[in-house]
Design a binder for these strands. Structure first.
Length: 543
DNA sequence: GCAGCGTTAATAT
DNA sequence: TTAACGCTGC
């Protein structure tokens, strides 16, 4: 993730800091990095989409850190990834394949009964889904934590916020693990921040155009710095074989002009430089400089930096490599966390699961340790049947909970949805004694279920692909069902812990629909994309 | 000196 | 997943 070896190369500019230096300021958070770290503590539960309190640990991890920032009087602004842009498709596919391989291996180990090896592999297979991000968003809403879902890259959105004044919603620094932020020219990035707020910071203006330290960026400007990052290899474009961060730096420092660097590269490396490298390079540069971001003031998308006449004229003004433009209504719905940017489906509002309201930082820290000490809060869970809107509101916390009928005989169960597993995996897990969702329904609640499509996807809102019109139509029809579901009252099944009177410890269990999350928008063919995106947009403007 | 590869440790509790 | 380290070949 990020720029190859950039952080190592920038070591002389790294300073140890404590996040409290930003007391009274607004600080941006790259949600993906904390979601991912948080998911380590429940990787198997996340990978197998199991139900249960343990799975919500990633939420606790996240909110603990939010609490810590608030403790130091920092205003956190959480930024989520949206869809992925075309030139990142190769990177995304590679990651997806690796995760799948690890998950398959983990399942094998699990079948063999080697749970240690399995959990290690599950950790490498962890993937943050839009549903997980949405769960977090609901908690952020209830805790009044500011957030925004980027139309595409969270990094670009963070860079945009960093360019705004505080009064206009700007942020002064960013907490992340992704070195891409430096390529986006973010002014201050805190990496490797621990749970106490200690981290390592790079402030770009201490490097660019400043003499003294080595490597010196004395005659660099922001564009040259970004160019150096791309040459070294980034998520959008792998580096030319034989070129790493050091050679990239030397080329840029020597020629101080990116076009010249590309010419020299071709001269020196010849055939090794792919035919379309200069074009791909310029597109990558354009992404870092002009990525589409959400502008909260105008409530629509805009480029990170104003588009240049060259960009508007070149390639017939086709800017789809930045990710397709989105209509303002779609952009707002995505930014505010109401529309899944991968599937373009409305998120179904369902109560947060098993997550206890976060408290102030020291309190929440204490609470976490108390939970560990007492073993679990999972005993004596109950199941709420036939929930209607009013009950849902109550469980969400919008209304008091009194009067809800509950069946107290149910015990807490870890439930796995069979749809995400192969048949052999299912039977192996059953042998190991894991209960499954469907079984849970059969055993406990034969109540009718209306399915809402719940689409597993691979990144926190990433992956957009569609194979053909048929699948697009499938997406449309399931999305149509989803919008019906949000409007029509119908029986649904909830589980909630018995101790949840004042909390939001409840969960809507819903069967899974078709797996279309990875089939929206074919990235490899931008022209293909336009017509389909267009029909998606038309569809949603109707909704 | 550098890129690039493989190995290992750490991520979280 | 990545960072860090050591080794190897150019």
């Amino acid at each position: 993730m990020g720029i190859n070896n950039l952080l190592k190369f920038m070591k002389p500019y790294v300073e140890s800091v404590h996040i409290k230096k930003y007391a009274g300021k607004r600080v941006g958070i790259d949600a993906y990095s904390w979601l991912h770290k948080g998911a380590y503590s429940c990787s198997m539960e996340v990978c197998l989409d199991m139900e249960g309190d343990k799975k919500t640990r990633f939420l606790q991890y996240f909110m603990h850190r939010i609490g810590m920032l608030r403790h130091y009087k920092i205003t956190p602004v959480v930024v989520f990834d949206g869809g992925s842009i075309p030139c990142k498709a190769a990177t995304e596919d590679g990651r997806h394949r690796k995760r799948k391989t690890n998950r398959d291996l983990a399942m094998e180990k699990l079948k063999e009964g080697d749970t240690d090896a399995a959990s290690e592999l599950f950790q490498r297979a962890v993937n943050i889904t839009p549903q997980m991000a949405h769960q977090l968003i609901q908690i952020l809403r209830s805790e009044n934590v500011e957030f925004v879902v980027a139309p595409y890259e969270a990094d670009a959105q963070l860079a945009y916020l960093a360019s705004l004044e505080t009064e206009k919603g700007g942020i002064v620094a960013i907490i992340s693990e992704d070195s891409d932020l430096l390529a986006y020219n973010c002014p201050a990035v805190v990496f490797k921040m621990d749970r106490y707020g200690k981290g390592e910071e790079i402030i770009l203006k201490n490097a660019i155009n400043v003499a003294g330290r080595k490597p010196s960026f004395m005659y660099f400007d922001r564009e040259l710095f970004t160019g150096m990052c791309i040459l070294a290899g980034c998520d959008f474009l792998p580096s030319v074989p034989g070129i790493g961060i050091v050679k990239a730096y030397n080329l840029v420092a020597k020629y101080r002009n990116l076009d010249r660097v590309l010419s020299v590269l071709k001269l020196e490396k010849g055939q090794v430089v792919p035919e379309d490298y200069p074009t791909a390079f310029r597109q990558a540069l354009a992404v870092f400089q002009h990525a589409r971001v959400y502008d909260a003031a105008s409530k629509k998308l805009k480029p990170l930096n104003p588009l240049t006449p060259e960009l508007l004229q070149g390639d017939n003004g086709d800017l789809d490599f930045l990710g397709p433009d989105l209509s303002p209504s779609i952009a707002v719905a995505i930014a505010e966390g109401n529309l899944n940017p991968c599937t373009m489906e409305a998120f179904n509002h369902f109560p947060q699961s098993g997550y206890k309201h976060s408290l102030s930082y020291p309190d929440s820290a204490r609470q976490l340790s108390t939970q560990e000490a007492t073993g679990s809060m999972q005993e004596g869970c109950f199941t709420v049947v036939s929930c209607h809107k009013t009950v849902k509101k109550r469980i969400r916390g919008d209304m008091p909970l009194d009067g809800i009928k509950s069946s107290s005989e149910g015990e807490h169960m870890t439930v796995i949805s069979e749809e995400v597993l192969h048949e052999s995996e299912t039977s192996a897990l059953k042998k190991l004694g894991f209960p499954f969702r469907n079984e849970a329904f059969v055993q406990k609640e034969p109540a009718p279920l209306r399915s809402t499509p719940n689409i597993p996807s691979n990144n926190p809102f990433k992956k957009r692909k569609i194979d053909d019109e048929v699948q697009l139509n499938e997406a449309m029809s399931t999305a149509e069902q989803a919008s019906e579901v949000t409007e029509v009252e119908k029986p649904e099944i909830f589980t909630a812990t018995q101790k949840s009177e004042e909390s939001i410890d409840s969960k809507l269990i819903k069967p899974k629909g078709k797996r279309i999350g990875e089939k929206l928008l074919k990235q490899s063919n931008p022209k293909h994309v336009s017509s389909k995106v267009c029909s998606i947009l038309n569809f949603f403007s109707r909704v």
